[in-house]
Nucleic acid binder design. Structure first.
Lengths: 193, 193
DNA sequence: AATAAAACTTGCCATAAGGCAAGAAAACTA
DNA sequence: TAGTTTTCTTGCCTTATGGCAAGTTTTATT
C-alpha cells in the first residue's frame, strides 16, 4: 500500500496526486549499506541518488595535503546526491560514505530523466530540493566568513543536533573549517557555561 | 535577425533548435542599470533574473555587525539570479547591485515557468546552469577551508582575472573572507616575487 | 575479558590574519 | 584645477586558531 511507503514522507501528498505518487514511488529501489560502504567514490560519475530512510552518511573531499574535509552529513529524510556529477555527467571529487548501517531508496539517472520530463510536479519538486540545498550551502559559506568558529558550531548544533550527536568530532571539525583540537576546546568552553 | 542577438552566445545553438531559440530569446527584455542601481534589494522577493551583456554586478549580504560580505561578482555572459528567492518565492537577504553601467537581458518568473515547462531543452539548460553555480559555490567553500588566504586570492585571480581587475580591493577581500588590510599585504607579497 | 585501535582532551608554543589608526594615492566632483 | 571623498597601504600590537605530541577515554575486535 503506497500510503505507508517511506517515500510518502519525502514526496508530500499535498504536492502530488495519487496517480503521480504511484508513477514515482515504485521507481525507487530499496538498497542497504553497511558502515563504511561507499555510495560514491572519487573519480566515479554519479549515476544514482538516494533518500535516507535510516542511518548516517557523510560526503567529503580530500585536499592536496591529503586531509579530508567533510562537505555534508545526511540522515533520515535527506537526499544524498552529488548534484554536479549527477547532472553534468562528470567524474566527481567527492566521496560519499555510510557512517552506519543505512537503508536508502535509490533512483538512477535515466529513470530520473524520464520522471523529470514527464511529470510537472516532479520537476518542480526536484528544482525546489536543489535550490534548498544551494541555499543551505550559501548560508554555510556566509557563516564561514561572518562567524567565528564557536558560532559556526552553535549554528550547526541548533540546525542539526542529531548530526552533532552522532558524528565524530574530527569529521564535524573539518566541516566547520577548524581542527579537532579547536573544536574540542570550543566544546569545553561551552560546557563550562 | 535572431542569429545576431546577444543571447545567442548564452543559449548555444548546438543545444537548441532554431525554433526553440525563436520561442525563447524574444521573451527577454533589454534593461539598463546605472552604477549603484539595485537589481534586487534585501527583503524583496526576486521576480526576475538577468544575463549580463556588459558591465559589472556584485551581490552581497550584510552580517549582524553591519559589515557587507560579497557573495558573488558578475560580468559579461553571466546569469544574475538569486536562486533561492526566485524559486522558493521567499524574501531575500541578498543585495544585488550594479558596479558600473550595465546592459542586461531580463526574464520574469511567470515567463520562465512557461518556458521551463514547455521546452525540454530550456529546462535542461536551466538545470545545468543552476548545477554549475552550485558547483562553483561548493568549490569556493572547499577553498575557504582547505586553502590559506593567499591561495584563495590566486585562485580567484586565475579564474576571474577581469573581476580582480575591475572590482575594489575591499569587495574582493570580503568575498575571500579576509580584511582589506590582509588582501593589500597579500598583493604586496605577490608583487615582490 | 583482554587487547588493540580510534576518538578525544590538554599543554605549550607558533603563526596567519585581524584591529586600529595614520598617511598616501587615486578617483570623483564642482 | 582645487578640493573632497574614497580606496589603498603600512606599522604596531593583539587574538583566534593551528601544530605537535602526550595522555586519557571510548569503542571495536577476538
Amino acid at each position: 500500500m503506497i500510503e505507508q511507503h517511506f517515500l510518502n514522507h519525502v514526496f508530500k501528498a499535498t504536492e502530488f496526486t495519487k496517480d503521480e505518487l504511484e508513477a514515482i514511488i515504485p521507481k525507487f529501489k530499496q538498497v542497504k549499506f553497511n558502515k563504511n560502504d561507499f555510495l560514491l567514490h572519487e573519480g566515479q560519475t554519479a549515476s544514482k541518488y538516494w533518500f535516507v530512510q535510516s542511518g548516517f552518511v557523510r560526503s567529503y573531499v580530500v585536499d592536496i595535503e591529503g586531509n579530508d574535509i567533510s562537505t555534508n552529513f545526511y540522515s533520515v529524510g535527506d537526499i544524498v546526491i552529488d548534484w554536479s556529477s549527477f547532472f553534468l555527467r562528470n567524474p566527481t571529487r567527492e566521496n560519499i560514505q555510510a557512517l552506519s548501517e543505512c537503508v536508502c531508496w535509490q533512483l538512477d539517472f535515466d529513470t530520473f530523466q524520464q520522471l523529470f520530463h514527464n511529470i510537472k510536479s516532479f520537476r518542480e519538486q526536484g528544482r525546489t530540493t536543489l535550490v534548498s540545498n544551494y541555499f543551505a550551502l550559501k548560508n554555510h559559506n556566509i557563516s564561514m566568513i561572518a562567524d567565528e568558529a564557536k558560532d559556526r558550531y552553535l549554528r550547526l548544533l541548533k540546525q542539526k543536533p542529531h548530526i552533532v550527536q552522532n558524528i565524530s568530532l574530527k569529521q564535524i571539525a573539518t566541516y566547520l573549517g577548524i581542527t579537532d583540537t579547536s573544536l574540542s576546546r570550543i566544546r569545553k568552553e561551552i560546557a563550562i557555561k
